[in-house]
Design a protein around this nucleic acid. Structure first.
Ligand SMILES: [Mn+2]
Length: 259
DNA sequence: TGGGGGGCAACTTG
DNA sequence: ACAAGTTGCCCCCC
């Protein structure tokens, strides 16, 4: 695996064939989170020092969506998205959020490094990452499921946290709305350097959110690594426009937008 | 007692 | 039908 300057793991890099998932670069103790239809695994993947370093690198590397791409229109009203988002992955992949499709930028060295670390401890391969930056506890994310059609249903979603600790809440889909089943939400604290794996079928039955926490004053960066199937017709692999596109050619280009 | 935080159902339009 | 935020209300706590 590629090394990143200033982040030399003490473990030797030799690839024995029996390399199993146990050592990265030290063993990671997993905690399993279990409920009806919910299956997650949580581990401390990076030390605090490593996490600080990675956070700092991402702060200079990651290019977030700006301008109209940093807003969302729902029910006719325009809102600023209450966090910053960036989209990275294999060339051609894209991500649709509230009807707007964003093209993935090419992996940065730090994102590749984190991706490969997660692959090393999980054995899962990822081709896409959504970066969410929460500037403080006012930034948040509403309840939702990651139920996009183009996601590989067999691949867990891997969530890496860097920076401020934040609460993270799962709610069963049948526990929402009036006349809901009484089921306790499952609450976690995601600390800096942690990795949360959301295994199937978690995303079928459980919504998750990152609630507002007014006491949190520091920023947090979250990476959700995913595997997108490229063969889906609708989204996934963005194909060249069928004909030389007349006006809207800028759809899949990466021009900088005004702040 | 008042106000702040948090949970959550209700509401929002094209 | 379908989007993902905000708002309002209620409860708890200091
Ligand atoms: Mn999600």
């Amino acid at each position: 695996m590629k090394k990143l300057e200033g982040l030399e793991w003490s473990g030797d890099e030799e690839k024995s064939k029996d390399d199993d998932l146990a050592e990265w670069p030290r063993p990671v103790p997993w905690r399993n989170i279990d409920a009806e239809g919910l299956d997650c695994d949580y581990a401390l993947l990076f030390t605090q020092e490593e996490a600080d370093s990675l956070f700092g690198r991402l702060e200079t590397e990651v290019v977030y969506l700006t301008g109209h791409e940093a807003r969302v229109q729902v029910f006719g009203k325009v809102h600023d998205i209450p966090r910053k988002q960036a989209v990275y992955g294999e060339p051609g992949l894209n991500y649709t959020y509230s009807g707007v499709t964003h093209c993935a930028r090419q992996w940065t060295p730090t994102l590749e490094y984190i991706r490969d670390a997660v692959t090393k401890v999980t054995g899962q391969v990822f081709n896409f990452v959504l970066v969410n930056r929460y500037k403080d506890g006012q930034d948040h994310m509403g309840e939702h499921r990651d139920d996009e059609r183009e996601l590989d249903p067999l691949c867990p979603i891997a969530s890496v946290s860097l920076g401020a600790s934040r609460d993270f809440v799962f709610r069963h889909r049948d526990a929402r709305g009036r006349g809901a089943r009484r089921m306790e939400p499952v609450k976690l604290q995601l600390v800096s350097g942690s990795l949360l794996l959301m295994n199937p079928p978690t995303n079928t039955y459980w919504y998750h959110s990152l609630p507002r926490r007014r006491a949190v004053l520091q920023p947090r960066i979250n990476l959700t690594l995913r595997r997108i199937l490229s063969s889906e017709g609708k989204v996934g692999l963005m194909t060249r426009p069928p004909a030389p596109p007349p006006a809207k050619q800028a759809l899949c280009s990466f021009e900088t937008e005004d702040e």
